[in-house]
């Protein structure tokens, strides 16, 4: 059976999808979580810290949805608040200072839309992630794990490469939002998904992303993803920094 774009949307949102935390524990060793934005709060939607990838210290920043209902409430179902993006920002700068590659794992419907987030500068916090992320003088690799929702996902995916899992989506807004804004009918979601080119295959073809990687379902597939990451981070680390920055500049300038 041929998979439709809407199948991809459902697969990306599936509760069977591997959690960000399990992915961190499978890909890296000695993960040590770092908390807080040093100003106001510690957003549970962003799980971040230092770990080792094949013995190399890296900074890991993930967006997590949580598994239990309590966790889901705390993370707003994977929708970060400005404090979360500022935590990410702090740890990106820290990674740069200590020459650690940055690896981000993105799974979010989007930045959290509420009054608190607006009052605390949701837009500005994402804008700073873009300003700092595109200029970060260390290798910066991103993986879209499930949902890559709009600016809230791009904030943590503006480095050297963006990869996507087979069952993931990345889009400018949700297919429901697209249908309701463009056709005033949120029920035309399947049609919207088809039109939006949000599947990994479409996005690879359109030059938006760099690689599609197989879903992690067991130890074997975890090991395969880990090998791909080790190899790519090695390549990026061996690239002279000015060359790396020029490549990244070129990547974004061409859009």
């Amino acid at each position: 059976m041929i998979r439709t774009a809407y199948d991809a949307v459902n697969a990306a949102r599936s509760s069977e999808k591997i959690s960000t935390r399990r992915l961190i524990n499978g890909l890296f060793t000695n993960f040590f979580e770092l908390h807080g934005d040093r100003h106001a709060a510690d957003d549970a939607a962003i799980v971040a810290g230092i770990a080792e990838l094949n013995g190399v210290p890296v900074t890991v920043i993930g967006i997590q949805k949580g598994s239990t209902m309590d966790e889901k409430m705390a993370t707003h179902f994977g929708c970060p608040e400005p404090e979360g993006y500022r935590k990410a920002l702090r740890l990106m700068k820290q990674a740069e200072k200590f020459h650690r590659p940055v690896i981000t794992l993105v799974n979010t419907p989007g930045a959290f839309p509420d009054v608190h987030a607006e009052h605390h500068g949701q837009g500005e916090s994402i804008a700073q992630c873009l300003l700092v992320g595109t200029q970060l003088r260390v290798p910066y690799l991103s993986l879209i794990v499930g949902e890559g929702g709009s600016g809230g996902a791009l904030a943590l995916a503006c480095g050297d490469q963006t990869w996507m899992f087979e069952d993931s989506i990345y889009s400018v807004l949700s297919p429901e939002g697209y249908a309701s804004i463009l056709w005033k009918d949120a029920h035309r979601v399947e049609e919207a998904a088809e039109e939006m080119r949000l599947t990994p295959e479409d996005l690879l073809e359109d030059g938006i992303i760099d690689r599609i990687v197989p879903e992690v379902k067991d130890d074997k597939s975890m090991g395969q993803l880990r090998q791909q990451m080790i190899s790519e981070i090695d390549t990026l680390r061996q690239t002279p920094i000015e060359e790396l920055m020029a490549q990244r500049h070129e990547r974004w300038r061409n859009f």
Binding site: L154, R197, I208, F255
Partner: peptide, 11 residues
């Protein structure tokens, strides 16, 4: 313009 629009934010 879909994702091409989103990419302009980073560009």
């Amino acid at each position: 313009e879909g994702m091409n629009s989103l990419m302009q934010m980073a560009k």
